[in-house]
Design a binder for these strands. Structure first.
Lengths: 245, 245
DNA sequence: CGAGGGTTTGAAGTGCATCAAATAGTGTGG
DNA sequence: CCACACTATTTGATGCACTTCAAACCCTCG
């Protein structure tokens, strides 16, 4: 790790993390005291899969890619997170090593904190433990769905589902315009497909559902059409309960 | 639900669940008081995906398949569990509905308990909450690996990995003989492939690694050969740390 | 012995990956 | 403001892995 600038801490960022609000009043102050701010540039690796875990991170700016890779360099993208999300906390109660590597996708900013602090706090504060349990339970639901999608949905449908999640749609069936949050190449990786496949699958999706594509911005004239096409191969009905994240 | 016989409760079964041992001394007794024993026959459905969750289960005999399915009946197998494992507890802190359906794969026996009891106990007993956190963290690691495998490993490698998990192998590279725990068709589903694909992929694995197949029993003359072939497309080195379950 | 499910095998089809190359976009220094 | 370099994206051609449909085989169990 190299060339990371340190900056004054924003306690405010910590207050925005729901998990921490479950802690005692002085918890955030104690976190702040041990916090370090990092500003990783594009491609900068923050943690490495299977290395001993000592710190976890909170994203305050930019996008962070979580991934695992084999000896020959092939990688599986676990998730891509932005401001407000935690990562590297997965070693807390199991294994003591990171379950994935993490690198900045673009100029980003993250707060680094010692895992030991969070761990002892959770051990001593039941409310925090419950909050953590809740967070993990939610994460688990998302993983369940992800696994299902990988085996039941085809490429165009996975993209459709991704768009639907971005649309934050209410019940309103009307037209919506959304922006891809990062490179199409990355979206492809996030969805477990090659960039070329993504490109072609998006074209298919366009034909099938009438969406309009202008670079990174996509207009959905009919949510219904998109839902029909996409959610046909999913075990849940559309306004998916646990769509967030 | 129909035709389930009730039987005297074995408190002993509950004592064998690590999670419960973290509770207070009288916890198991209180669980027993509310427990019901079910003996689902093959194909009997115990819980249904997205229905309100009121009870969770502990398996004491047989095999239970967890799965999700789309409207057209296609199903994605989440996991297949045997004695000692819990299921249906996933709704505890999120959603209040089951995250999957569950059915007995063969004549089985499960203990059913109210979720509310477990929930209130966890809320009032920090040690139990921590134990639960640990269990969830471990589960999460397994899911991470599963997802990675689905995108990086091909069919023969996924089978190889499954065999390696069954072999409970020490460092010893010597020959091992294992038994498939259930139908090949089910193993296929568990690994996310068709029965036909499984059959052909197993044949390929045999050629590539020299394993011997006699029905459900498989002899592995050289673990090394199997590991070489299988773990080439995995992010972890072989004696995988978190191989259990 | 016969019925029915599990398993294998064969023949085709499909979807995605891969390799290769063209095109569009973006940021740079002149 | 332009030309260049570099990256992202698209498009085309081809191959492979897995699926699908169909049928044979095998095995167990009544």
């Amino acid at each position: 790790m190299h060339g990371l600038s340190e900056q004054p801490i924003t306690t405010k960022s910590l207050q925005n993390v729901p998990l921490f609000r479950a802690g005692p009043p002085d918890f955030i102050a104690r976190l702040s005291a041990q916090a370090t701010v990092l500003s990783p540039g594009k491609g900068h690796v923050l943690i490495v899969h299977e290395e001993p875990a000592t710190r976890f991170f909170i994203i305050t700016k930019g996008w962070i890619k979580l991934y695992r890779e084999t000896l020959d360099g092939t990688q599986a993208v676990v998730d891509i997170l932005n401001a407000g999300h935690l990562f590297g906390e997965g070693a807390l109660f199991q294994g003591d090593t990171y379950p994935y590597s993490a690198e900045a996708v673009e100029e980003s900013e993250v707060i680094s904190l010692p895992l030991s602090l969070l761990k002892s706090e959770i051990e001593n504060n039941p409310a925090l433990a419950l909050s953590m349990l809740k967070a993990m339970a939610q994460h688990r639901r998302l993983m369940d769905k992800e696994l299902e999608h990988r085996s039941l949905q085809n490429a165009p449908q996975r993209i459709g589902c991704f768009l639907l999640r971005l649309s934050h749609s209410p019940a309103a069936p009307g037209p919506v315009t959304i922006h891809l949050p990062y490179d199409k190449t990355l979206v492809a990786a996030r969805l477990g497909m090659q960039p070329e496949t993504f490109s072609r699958a998006l074209a298919k999706l366009k034909i099938a559902t009438g969406i309009d594509i202008h670079g990174a911005s996509i207009n959905i004239p009919s949510l219904d059409a998109l839902v029909n096409f996409t959610c046909a191969a999913c075990s849940s009905e559309f306004p998916c309960k646990d769509m967030d994240v």
